[in-house]
Design a protein around this nucleic acid. Structure first.
Lengths: 154, 154
DNA sequence: GCTAGTAGTTGCACATGACAACTATGGCTG
DNA sequence: CAGCCATAGTTGTCATGTGCAACTACTAGC
């Protein structure tokens, strides 16, 4: 099983490098950075998010999440609203422009992915998404469980 | 099929965020950054790499690759050697320390991944690596094919 | 041997992201 | 209800990573 594990480690790191590269490269197309894109999509999908929710969703520090949100507000893709119940909380919601940008990016991306899925046999296609989803969940569970830093001696 | 494509896009972006986070978090453990780790592994696996080869392997600009190599040389994990045949070319090779660090990281990582693979049914395990590998290749082929930037009008 | 091309380095600007210190608000306890 | 602690978010600061453009050094072809 360690052989499988090593192969998976190699394959995943390669996949991540190439996807990151593609994302970096494509970011310019929409005048929006990769993190901003993830944040925008997070807010659009959720309907509304607080800064803390956003930070958790993106696996970023809340200060970084706050700045990412600022960037999107400056671009008029998001709005900040004060929460009625709790004065500390900021509710981020997407503007019409934000939703539009998000929709456009998703469509373009879906097109690319659809083409890419064409490389695979039909019976494999459905498995791919299942596998990737479950992999993501497994990682997330481990990350959440281990809490903060990995190598703190405590 | 567009539905599959959207689901894959979502799953993959989630996976990438969480893996990136884990990598950021774990980077400190070995006094080596994520890019440095990839570079070190690339050199160790290949036996020797030029700066250009390294840049291609990491999907980075050659200037960045050069600096990543510098950092590893400063840490005495790599050495730069002049190519005998071509005076312009730098040959990067790993030192004993570099190989040792790489081996240790790979072992630790393989352990983590082995544990993670335990979440999956045996018949799925083998499929995971195959799927991730093929996904990576499909992306790489597309990135190589499209060459430079995505949205240049020229 | 001059010119064009290639490998790599360096200067520079900018993006990303963490940590810590801070403000402001909410909630709990005596 | 006053004081204290916890929580949400912001801001300052710093380190790191990255690309682009300009540069040097070398090679190769005419």
């Amino acid at each position: 099983m360690l052989v499988d594990a090593r192969a998976l480690a190699d394959a995943l790191s390669e996949l991540i490098r190439v996807v990151q590269f593609r994302d970096r490269d494509r970011a310019c197309c929409y005048d929006i950075s990769v993190s901003q894109c993830y944040a925008l999509k997070g807010v659009v999908d959720a309907g509304a998010l607080t800064i803390n929710d956003l930070a958790a969703h993106l696996y970023l520090d809340k200060s970084t999440a706050s700045r990412v949100a600022n960037a999107l507000v400056d671009k008029a893709l998001l709005v900040r609203q004060a929460d009625e119940a709790d004065g500390r909380v900021v509710r981020l919601t997407a503007t019409a422009a934000g939703t539009a940008v998000c929709t456009r990016i998703e469509s373009d991306l879906a097109g690319e992915y659809a083409e890419l899925l064409g490389d695979f046999e039909p019976e494999v296609r459905a498995a791919i998404t299942r596998v990737v989803t479950r992999l993501g969940r497994s990682f997330a569970a481990r990350v959440d469980a281990s809490g903060g830093s990995c190598c703190v001696v405590g």
